[in-house]
Design a protein around this nucleic acid. Structure first.
Lengths: 131, 131
DNA sequence: TAAATTCCTACCAGTTTAGTAGGAATACTA
DNA sequence: TAGTATTCCTACTAAACTGGTAGGAATTTA
């Protein structure tokens, strides 16, 4: 997603390119794409001269968006989202902690956008001051 | 650890008791104890009339202490602590995010002590106001 | 000496993670 | 219209991790 952000506005980018720049296999990247498409974060163009582009401007995609899609959740324990997985949920003290922890993780990740990463890459802003 | 905190000051507590109260097996709890002992968070008394007690007052044990011991780490990616696992670490933009994320997780968990959980259990304090 | 309990080491089964593989579908280009 | 480039889909796999179980030795009290 960072590579797509760097390429934003320049038409579709090949997985092959991304794979080279990030030192990953195309086969692996192919695996990550479907959920990103479903979530409408990237847009695919098939066939020759095809490739991928961000579906929104980098400033409109937070790291929370991306990680929720690729990792599925942000909570440290499933009970945060699905109390029914444990019959202690109603009165569990620890669960409150996990809930608070998810909130801070969520807030932190929502505080960064792909544009922040691009800016940092080009040293356009003083990243440290962003947070 | 929460049960031991509730029991703090009343001598050693049996794993059997904890197992009943938390709906876990003794066999499983036995598994968790060694690292807690090594980290000097709990103290064990062997033999009949033995059991476990906290090695410090509940107010002096943070959730960060406990989770570091039981889960081994708090970072979302190993590269945060061991840059050498990936040769992109030196210039990886994403790694900075993982580092920041670990900081907020760490800070959040360090902000709770076992005493907070005990207090919440007895409704002695208004928990919401703690954070 | 018997009972209670921690302690140590080994094992196991299910899930998750990080991939690889084959080939079909699609679209551009000559 | 044929060839090539590329995404797309489904299945497979191997290693690591997680959440346990199991047997029995060591220790302490009564």
């Amino acid at each position: 997603m960072f590579q797509l952000a760097l390429n934003y506005g320049n038409g579709p980018m090949l997985l092959k390119e991304i794979a080279e720049k990030e030192d990953l296999s195309v086969r692996y990247l192919e695996h990550l794409v479907p959920p990103l498409k479903t979530a409408r974060l990237v847009y695919a163009t098939r066939g020759a001269r095809g490739g991928y582009s961000l579906a929104k401007a980098p400033i409109d995609i937070t790291l929370k968006d991306i990680i929720r899609v690729l990792e599925g959740h942000l909570y440290p324990s499933e009970c945060v989202e699905s109390p029914e997985v444990c019959n202690r949920s109603r009165f569990c003290i620890t669960r409150d902690i996990w809930t608070k922890l998810e909130e801070t993780i969520s807030t932190t990740l929502a505080g960064f956008t792909l544009q922040d990463l691009v800016d940092k890459y080009y040293n356009k802003t003083h990243y440290e001051e962003l947070q």
